[in-house]
Computed example of a mutant assay.
Amino acid sequence: MSVAFAGYAAVFDRVDRAGDLMRRGAFAGAGAVPLLWQHRGQAIGTIEAIGEDARGLRVSGRVDDAELAALVRGGAVAGLSVGYRAVAATQGAYRELTAVDLVEVSLVAVPMQPLARVDLVGG
């Protein structure tokens, strides 16, 4: 059984565990991307809506893999993450990403950006 979800796959202006900092506008023009598990393998569902808002990259989608859907529904898996290629960045105390080519969004056990989380789970 599938489950619908929504959350932030990236949060702006917050340093992640790798020392990267996403800036507003970095995902401008992002189109359809697959939903993966831990950045690997086949798609486990679909991203139905994706776009930037004031906080970050907001996504909503559906997990079709029954085992992962149950984990998301139960709150055991709530991390989100983005796979990307840097297009424009500056290096200072942190690597500030101002433009990226979004490749995929993943559900993850431990997100690189601690605030990138599923915050809504539906039917």
Rank of each mutant, 00 (worst) to 15 (best):
G7N: 06
V3W: 04
V121T: 04
S60L: 05
G122H: 05
G51K: 01
P111D: 02
R17Y: 03
V108I: 06
A6S: 14
D53M: 00
L80E: 00
A9E: 03
V77D: 09
A49M: 10
L71T: 03
A43S: 12
E52S: 02
L115A: 12
P111F: 03
D101G: 10
E67A: 13
G75F: 06
D20N: 03
V11R: 12
A30E: 10
I50N: 07
Q91V: 11
G92K: 02
V103Y: 13
D53Q: 00
L120V: 10
G92C: 02
A43I: 11
E96C: 11
V121H: 05
F12P: 00
Q42M: 14
G83L: 11
G25P: 04
G75I: 14
A18W: 09
V11P: 07
R40K: 15
V108H: 07
I47D: 08
G61P: 02
P114V: 06
P34D: 08
R62P: 05
A78T: 15
A70P: 03
G61T: 05
D13C: 01
G122Y: 02
A6M: 04
V110K: 14
Q113W: 00
G61N: 01
I44P: 09
W37T: 09
G79I: 05
R62A: 10
A30Q: 08
V103K: 14
R17V: 06
V87A: 14
D16S: 07
G61A: 03
G56C: 01
L115S: 09
R17L: 13
L36N: 06
G122E: 14
F27S: 01
G29K: 03
S106V: 05
E67T: 12
S60F: 04
A49W: 09
A86L: 09
S2G: 12
G122M: 09
A9S: 10
A109T: 13
D101F: 14
V82S: 02
A28E: 13
V103G: 11
P111S: 04
G83Q: 12
G25V: 01
W37V: 11
G83N: 11
S106Y: 02
P34F: 12
R14D: 08
Q91L: 13
A18V: 06
V108A: 04
V11M: 05
R95N: 01
R17G: 08
G122F: 02
G74M: 04
A66L: 08
G51W: 00
D16N: 08
A4K: 14
P114K: 03
Y94V: 10
